[in-house]
Amino acid sequence: MTMQVEKLMHAVFFIAALVSIIAVALICIFLFANGIPAMREIGFLDFLLGQRWAPMNSPPSFGIFPMIVGSIYVTAGAIIIGVPVGVLTAIFLAKYCPAKLYRVVKPAIQLLAGIPSVVYGFFGLMVIVPFIRTYLGGSGYSILSASILLGIMILPTIIGVSESAIRAVPREYYEGAVALGATHERAVFATVVPAATSGILASIILGVGRAIGETMAVVMVAGNQARVPSSILQGVRTMTTNVVLEMGYAYGLHRGSLIATGVILFVFILMINLLFSVLKRRTNYGS
């Protein structure tokens, strides 16, 4: 009897583990089946490298090169701003923060994760955009505004995952270093943080995913111009905003081209994941 239950539950756990594989397969099938035909009709290279996006013109042009560049710029900006602050804050929470303060700070950061992106977007529109316009010039709708906003938005993700990775490092690492005469900082930065690298990298993957995929907030502050920008004070359109701006109106080839934009975004995510898992494996070998 117990053996049977053991076996049954083993099977249940196994099937549960397979769900994520099935989900990825379904997503691939449905996106590709709807996106690839549109790409073929437009011409694969014309679609990827075309500089002109004018879906309502006749004849229309569907080039998403500016959006690809836009997504890369905005995500890179968010990472440059969000990762150092996020990881250092995680270190603060795990290794500096007094218990009393922690009880306030931790829920506060979780709250940051719960604020809907629309609210972030309005905040960006009302505060960050005018700030940039007044002090740095341009219209304020810019790569910089979007990067700052996304940098804030990915903080809770990065802090949460990094912190638990740092906390998972055995105490002996830290205590050993201190016993050898290292300062608190040196013990933390030279022994604990390196040991948590894989977790911190995972937090960055999640952060990149959130930044590249964020839509509703970016759409309000990025300006959404479909052309390759030449300065960080210029506006930009990302792949996500391209989809959300026009999906409601689109039909026929226009709609197919928007799904195809989603496919390209998806391929980007796959590439990033691949890159990081290679990176992660190498780090594991090193230690």
Binding site: S58, M126, V129, Y141, A226, R237
Partner: peptide, 27 residues
């Protein structure tokens, strides 16, 4: 061949009436 929308590519694209309103009210 058809019709072309000549709106400048530098135009900021706002995805709703309120976004236009808020953008103009603040800029």
């Amino acid at each position: 061949e058809g019709t072309i929308d000549r709106t400048t590519v530098e135009a900021i694209i706002a995805n709703g009436t309120d976004v236009v309103l808020a953008s103009v009210a603040n800029n």
